[in-house]
Design a protein around this nucleic acid. Structure first.
Length: 420
RNA sequence: GGAGGAGUGGCAGAGUGGUCGAUUGCACCUGUCUUGAAAACAGGAGUCUGGGUAACCGGACCGUGAGUUCGAAUCUCACCUCCUCCGCCA
């Protein structure tokens, strides 16, 4: 959510931002609605002021006749007031709904473009492996070493179901341990957060109302979150954070659920696109300045890059174009890892910052040195998304005989050097 | 699943229809005193929002939302959250 004052004063900027994101949003309509809202508000408040005045006059009145006269007069005003309040209420409802759909403004450095095809590669790391044999795909490797069972997985869980077994299961925990150690050393606070969340956290993080079709919903009206970001941000909802505790750096684990509505034909085999997965997510809350946001955005990217470098998985970093940004995102980098069998990079990490878009919705604030209240800034980035990361990991580390070398940094947790 | 209780400012905790946005204590800020601090004393201070260059002037906020009333923190209803007990499960 953006500040309505800001929108009023910068309507061209807001309109241009929406256009850059390829989001259909009518600023003029919102501003018209806001004019109505403010006019009604002024009227209602003036009437309420009058009501308050007569009410206290009634309380003070000693003369019984005078008292009755005032009460009768007040009754008339009240009727009028109620009508106006109803009108205001309806306008407010429309206004609030529209405010929730105002897209945040993308950064100047975000390239123009309509979808991920227009993202800009800004960096590559690691050598794309040159195999002297035809590299096997994830499915073959997983099945060969009995690391995953898709047939029984779908029997149990339905479409996109899977079960991780043996070294497949062990790798998830090895990766988790590795990531946890690395990020805790950087001052991140580890958390295991709920996947089952209430509406508020999803509204606050910007996944609702627009993203409802991609979320699983319970019969109690709760939702299954698609990322630990949701619960981690909700954690500080309605709080005033002590200045000295900023920045807050969290490394959060949760199971994540995605309906993948509208992607039914994509990645139907394997571990790339599944309905239920396990993810470590980095979340930062910092002071409200663009410079701080940029600084920690780069920091978050660096953290994930370091993990990939230690795992020695070749990747590149892309700067997402306007059309590939979510409603609240100001700027986003994706890390995409090399997948030999596909001969291309696939997304494994996504680092974005929001300015106060999320914190305004969640009411997460802090007091600056002068005692002034501000909405904090928020950012997040994947630390490691499992089991998706197994795809580039296994494929890049495969050997001609079908065995898979265990990345050096995972060996202490796997207790072996080679799979198979 | 059943029964009962509770939600008030940063915290604790009064207030059960009429200057209550809210007594008081702690914490906080500013003075006085002190070499400095502590203590004591005096004073100040909430959040959101509309108008105004500003001083300032309105409005809203006592879990949330409706309702009763000229007037609601206080009465009624629904919901949310927490606590206690019983049941069920691990």
């Amino acid at each position: 959510m953006l500040d309505i004052k800001f929108i009023r004063e910068n309507k061209d900027l807001v309109a241009a931002g929406a256009a850059k994101k390829h989001i259909d949003f009518n600023v003029e309509e919102l501003l018209g609605l806001d004019d109505t809202r403010r006019a009604l508000l002024a009227e209602v408040e003036a009437m309420r002021g009058k009501q308050n005045e007569t009410a206290s006059a009634v309380a003070r009145a000693s003369d019984q006749v005078e008292r009755e006269r005032m009460i009768t007069a007040s009754k008339l005003v009240k009727e009028e007031l109620q009508k106006k309040e109803e009108e205001l209420g309806e306008t407010m409802k429309k206004w609030q709904l529209m405010m929730l759909s105002v897209p945040n403004i993308p950064d100047m450095s975000v390239p123009e473009g309509s979808d991920d095809a227009d993202n800009q590669e800004i960096k590559t790391w690691g050598d794309i492996p040159q195999f002297s044999f035809t590299p096997k795909g994830q499915m073959e490797l997983l099945e060969m070493h009995d690391m995953a069972d898709f047939e029984r997985g779908t029997k149990v869980a339905g479409f996109r179901g899977y079960v991780l077994k043996n070294d497949g299961a062990r790798l998830i925990f090895a990766l988790s341990q590795f990531v946890l150690n690395e990020l805790c050393a950087e001052g991140f606070t580890p958390m295991i957060v709920p996947s089952l969340v209430r509406r508020e956290s999803l509204l606050g993080t910007g996944f609702l109302p627009q993203g409802e079709p991609d979320l699983y919903k319970t019969q109690d009206g709760d939702f299954l979150a698609g990322t630990a970001e949701v619960a981690t941000m909700g954690y500080h909802m309605d709080e005033v954070l002590p200045l000295e505790e900023l920045p807050k750096k969290y490394i959060s684990f949760s199971t994540s659920f995605r309906r993948e509505a509208g992607s039914h034909s994509k990645d139907v085999k394997g571990l790339i696109r599944v309905h239920e997965f396990y993810k470590w997510e980095q979340v930062i809350l910092c002071e409200a300045s663009h410079e701080e946001s940029v600084k920690y955005h780069e920091f978050l990217l660096e953290m994930s890059e370091r993990l990939m470098q230690k795992l020695k998985i070749p990747y590149h970093v892309v700067l997402n174009c306007g059309g590939d940004l979510g409603l609240g995102q100001v700027k986003k980098y994706d890390i995409e890892a090399w997948v030999p069998s596909e001969g291309k990079y696939r997304e494994t990490h996504s680092a974005s910052y929001f300015h106060d878009f999320q914190t305004r919705r969640l009411n997460i604030r802090y007091r600056d040195k002068e005692g002034k209240m501000h909405f904090a800034h928020s950012l997040n980035n994947t630390a490691i998304a499992t089991p998706r990361i197994l795809v580039p990991l296994l494929e890049n580390y495969q050997n001609e005989d079908g065995t898979i070398t265990v990345p050096e940094v995972l060996r202490p947790y796997m207790g072996k050097d080679v799979i198979g």
